[in-house]
Write a protein that binds this DNA or RNA. Structure first.
Lengths: 181, 181
DNA sequence: GATTTAACGTACCGAGTGGTACGAATATCG
DNA sequence: CGATATTCGTACCACTCGGTACGTTAAATC
């Protein structure tokens, strides 16, 4: 997982992973079956360890401005995201993934959109001021903007710039301008 | 250039290009020196044939809303962009490019930002209503949002969805909502 | 037309990929 | 302890990659 996280998952070879993990190649195959299986397992672990934090954040159902600010902070400056996000990195090269990994990526993508939709709907019912847009569109927009930010971070763009850009993109969803970047 | 345009440039091998072009590998090497040289040449050609249209659009100095609408139409639905953009595709995998191609990519990136900055400055001087943001930030934002849209198109996202998302992202720059998607 | 020159493409190179055959080492059990 | 499963990793497989050595063909020159 760390290997896929620190570098581009599609650039990391099995040989390299074996070396990093101190495992032999057949051992790796006995455990995961194939490269696809390994990537899927790594993605599973990443979803469980990292992405869950984001889903938890949405489940808290905090006010929109608060949540968006937290997301901007998370994607823009959290050192954990310094090398980007395994999910988005894999999604970016979806066409090169094995079937298991690809379907897991699509699963997570759908779950993310659905999570944001649920959050936005809940916010609207709570009387929060949400831009007058179809929920599905707003949710998809959020997912894509976060992906853009994390992709930028992975390629070494200045965190402050990433943060500013993302805040700007988010500002279209909350009627008032966000307080801080 | 077409090979790099239709597929992910980093997935197209020299052998594949030779086959498509009906040329032998040594012939290709005699003409371009290396894979890096070939990619750089393809990118040059692409910049000259396709990207120039966008720069021309900016040089026309049309009102902001008009220009943004044109960009949304271009990136979102123009069939020419159905398989994405060579420049953005190469930029996405910048770390894997050869030195020539990489420096050309960075050149084009800088030129794009500078082009948008010049356009926005000109618009402001003409009294056009532009969101109150640093020009550099707005220009960078535009470049990134267009990149996101073209990346989505390359991965087969529904053009209407791409268009809508991009229009939403752009709406933050023009005070009034854009008339049509 | 003879001879030099230049372009051409077959057939190869070493490196690296994902994946596996198979013998050696280890653990389990009577 | 000896016999039987089971796990382990070395050393290989076929394949593709970017790149090139070199004999052959074609073109230019005189």
């Amino acid at each position: 997982m760390r290997a896929y996280w620190q570098n581009d998952p599609l650039d990391v070879s099995l040989n390299a992973i074996c070396e990093m993990a101190g495992a032999s190649k057949p051992a790796l195959y006995r455990a995961f079956g194939s490269e696809d299986g390994l990537m899927r397992a790594a993605l599973d672990r990443y979803a469980d360890r990292v992405l869950s934090d984001v889903f938890d954040l949405l489940a808290q159902a905090a006010p929109l401005k608060t949540t968006l600010a937290a997301l901007v902070r998370f994607a823009g400056t959290d050192p954990k995201m310094e090398t980007g996000c395994v999910f988005y990195k894999m999604r970016a090269g979806k066409h090169r993934l094995g079937p298991q990994t690809r379907s897991r990526v699509e699963e997570i993508d759908a779950a993310a959109v659905q999570g944001f939709e649920a959050y936005l709907d809940a916010r609207r019912e709570d009387g929060d001021e949400v831009a007058d847009l179809p929920t599905a569109l707003a949710a998809r927009y959020l997912v894509e903007q976060i992906g853009l930010a994390l992709t930028q971070r992975a390629s070494g763009v200045d965190p402050v710039a990433v943060q500013t850009t993302l805040a700007l993109a988010f500002s279209v969803l909350a009627p008032a301008r966000m307080s801080d970047a």
